[in-house]
Design a binder for these strands. Structure first.
Lengths: 110, 110
DNA sequence: TATATTTATTCTACAAAATAGAAAAAATAA
DNA sequence: TTATTTTTTCTATTTTGTAGAATAAATATA
């Protein structure tokens, strides 16, 4: 029974990739999660998730060129596949649909 | 390190409880998930999650009165705690905030 | 009152996702 | 060639997600 829904952290990582565009890589994603949610995550957690997402065909990756900065290993850059984008959109649409049916809860947002 | 974020299925179950109001119980939640998302879930999965959510203080439960219908065991009725409601709202707000930063993706919704 | 039927929950076991921390690799600088 | 930096990879564990069978509790009916 292949699971079709995204895990919570998987979805978050996909969103960060969409957000970071051409410069989405492990450490950068880790930082962006902190920035966007206040949540601290271990770098290993991010990479494990990226690797799972790639296996499932939701993202793809390639090695970036070395930059002129200090030094350090080359980045592995990630982008969403069409499938990954679709999964993200569907996940959002489902939730929006449910939220609109719970206006009581929505009111508390404002 | 206590985890603060909701799992994907945990969030879905919380949403169903908010949606079903006074009549949120295991089997009903299971049916509502099917109705709202098209996704089929085993009843055991729902109850396991409900039980975890209760342990974590996100929901509380009480036994319902027997109804006049055919027969069958009494329902265990679930409601969100204030903490559960807060978690749900925060989870939504975080995502909405991120989505608004990715207009490219939003456009594909329509 | 026994037995059948119905509606639900609870139990047991396993797979997948989330998480952390340390180790290793690959780049530049000195 | 050694040190420093940036980043990925590896290893291990906990928490979530999942299913299916067993059990329980209610009403109906013979």
């Amino acid at each position: 029974m292949g699971k079709e829904s995204l895990g919570e952290f998987e979805e978050l990582v996909l969103l960060m990739i969409a957000l970071l565009k051409e410069d989405a890589y492990g450490l950068g994603i880790c930082d962006e999660i902190k920035k966007q949610t206040g949540r601290t995550t271990a770098i290993g957690a991010v990479h494990a998730t990226l690797s799972r997402l790639e296996t499932k065909g939701l993202v793809e990756s390639s090695l970036g060129d070395p930059t002129k900065e200090r030094g350090g290993r080359r980045k592995r850059l990630f982008t969403l596949t069409a499938f990954g984008e679709k999964a993200l959109i569907q996940s959002r649409d489902t939730k929006v649909s449910i939220w609109t049916q719970i206006p009581e809860l929505s009111i508390k947002t404002v």
